[in-house]
Simulated scan of single mutants.
Amino acid sequence: QLPGLEGHLPVTAGPSANSGYPLDAQWRAVRDRALKGDTEAVALLAFRESLPSSTTCCDTITATRFLRARKGNVALAVMMYSTCAAWRSSERVDDVISEPTGPSEQALAAAFSPKLLNATDKHGRPIWFISLGEMDVSALAKQGITLHMLIRRHVRLSEQMRIAVERSKEPLQGHLLVQDIGACSVMKFLRSRQFFKAQAQISQDYYPELLGQLLILKGPPAAKWAVETSKKFLDKDTASKIRLECGSSRGALLEYVSESVAEELLALLGESTSGSSSK
């Protein structure tokens, strides 16, 4: 498992392991809502009935995420989910969490090492912290780290995020992702642009509505250009969930989390936790 995940997540990573209730019970509840005139429930039932026979039905939370990602359009949601199911099969995504790590794990971890906090934000969402300061695809290539390895690690992280969100009290709220880009530079971003583009595409196409809020902290002067460039790879709804903060990390964090959680995140950011604003 990735650092910070021990004790938080189940061993299994199947796409229907979210609510703890059997699938039949979940869908019966949806039918009850539909009978009472709930339009989203009606669309969910249509989504389920429209899935190809070759595509395994999912749980209701996953179905809702895909339906909302396509603004309630059942046909588009079915197409999106079917494409995702085919991708999961071809890429062996259900095996990614249990895959053994190789000799390059230390270099990979230094560049891309997420941490799941044992806490939630003010909306009850799981909180993830990632430092991207060492993400430099060209430099990592010299250590034997390929783009494929980085993307595979991102898929593993996405699975861990998905499971954490599905185990939360309000899974449709997504998660809060805090990114530290203080050690990033324009040149590192440009050399790693292919990875960031692939990362954004995977998250958007195969893990829709999983992101509740992305808070990017310690942005250097050129960060606004890099973030705006990255947003071009995303749809407008996803892009609207991204916030860049180049000033006080403490002030931004306290809008989303409690004082104690903010202190923990500030420590991870390497900033003062004395109570004064970090610049």
Results as ranks from 00 to 15, higher is better:
residue 99 E to T: 14
residue 221 P to W: 07
residue 8 H to G: 06
residue 136 D to K: 03
residue 91 E to T: 14
residue 238 T to Q: 06
residue 152 R to L: 04
residue 177 L to E: 05
residue 5 L to H: 09
residue 53 S to K: 14
residue 170 E to I: 11
residue 223 A to I: 06
residue 82 S to M: 09
residue 209 E to Q: 13
residue 44 L to Q: 15
residue 241 K to T: 12
residue 107 A to L: 11
residue 80 M to W: 09
residue 238 T to M: 07
residue 90 S to N: 15
residue 74 V to H: 13
residue 15 P to I: 09
residue 140 L to A: 06
residue 234 L to S: 08
residue 15 P to C: 13
residue 172 L to D: 02
residue 60 T to D: 13
residue 43 A to I: 03
residue 155 V to L: 04
residue 115 K to D: 08
residue 26 Q to P: 02
residue 141 A to Y: 04
residue 62 T to P: 02
residue 131 S to V: 08
residue 276 S to Y: 09
residue 249 S to L: 01
residue 82 S to A: 14
residue 185 S to A: 04
residue 38 D to M: 12
residue 92 R to N: 13
residue 27 W to T: 09
residue 87 W to Y: 14
residue 248 S to G: 11
residue 86 A to N: 08
residue 197 K to G: 00
residue 52 P to D: 03
residue 220 P to N: 00
residue 178 V to E: 04
residue 78 V to P: 01
residue 253 L to V: 07
residue 118 N to E: 12
residue 234 L to H: 06
residue 123 H to Y: 06
residue 129 F to I: 07
residue 139 A to Y: 06
residue 264 E to N: 12
residue 216 I to E: 05
residue 149 M to N: 08
residue 220 P to Y: 00
residue 277 S to D: 15
residue 203 S to A: 14
residue 93 V to L: 11
residue 35 L to Y: 07
residue 265 L to H: 03
residue 70 R to F: 04
residue 83 T to A: 05
residue 57 C to N: 10
residue 213 Q to F: 01
residue 124 G to H: 09
residue 205 D to W: 05
residue 59 D to V: 03
residue 24 D to F: 09
residue 82 S to N: 03
residue 240 S to N: 09
